[in-house]
């Protein structure tokens, strides 16, 4: 009798397949149908050039590497070159020299130029992770089109800027 049971089960399997098939198709259609009805509320894409004023990129967006300066034109970069070493494709180059520190009167390593080549950057974020003083951060800008490649080479520290006090003391 076993073979009979099996054949009956198989026969039932045929019809339950049809039932399951139709049911799953209708489930799928109801899900997409819900999306269709809510397209106005749930629209993921945005009307881009029009909403430039109000557009805010999400927090973790990796646009470009920036170096924040405070109101006294002071940054947090000590010129340790950890970012330059961490960068896998030589995007960052730091030009530094030893200058006279006004407070202590000693000669000290200071950055002259923190060169960042956006055109070579793969946005891997290793430099930002490597930075011991949080001098460089992710910027939110993504409108990077320029007419010549040379404009993509940026000097991150502003002219005349110097090291913020107390950054080195923390270590």
């Amino acid at each position: 009798m076993a073979w009979l049971n099996n054949s009956i089960l198989e026969d039932m399997g045929y019809f339950s397949d049809i039932y399951q098939g139709i049911k799953s198709l209708l489930t799928g259609m109801s899900i997409t149908g819900k999306y269709f009805l809510n397209f106005r509320k749930g629209s993921i894409t945005q009307q881009y050039p029009e909403n430039r004023e109000t557009l805010k990129m999400f927090e973790r967006f990796r646009g470009e590497v920036i170096m924040p300066h405070d109101e006294n034109n002071e940054h947090r970069c000590t010129g340790c070159q950890a970012c330059e070493i961490a960068c896998p494709n030589g995007t960052i180059e730091i030009i530094w020299d030893r200058q006279l520190d006004e407070e202590s009167g000693k000669k000290k390593k200071m950055i002259d130029k923190h060169i960042y080549r956006l055109g070579m950057c793969t946005m891997c974020g290793l430099c930002i992770e490597a930075c011991p003083t949080d001098a460089i951060k992710w910027g939110q800008n993504f409108e990077n089109s320029v007419y010549d490649r040379k404009y993509l080479d940026r000097i991150l520290n502003k002219p005349g800027s110097k090291l913020m006090k107390g950054v080195e003391d923390k270590e």
Binding site: T32, Y35, F36, N38, F39, G42, S43, I44, T45, Q47
Partner: peptide, 10 residues
Amino acid sequence: RIAAWFQLRR
């Protein structure tokens, strides 16, 4: 247009 609306695009 309908494809866009199904995919929550514009």
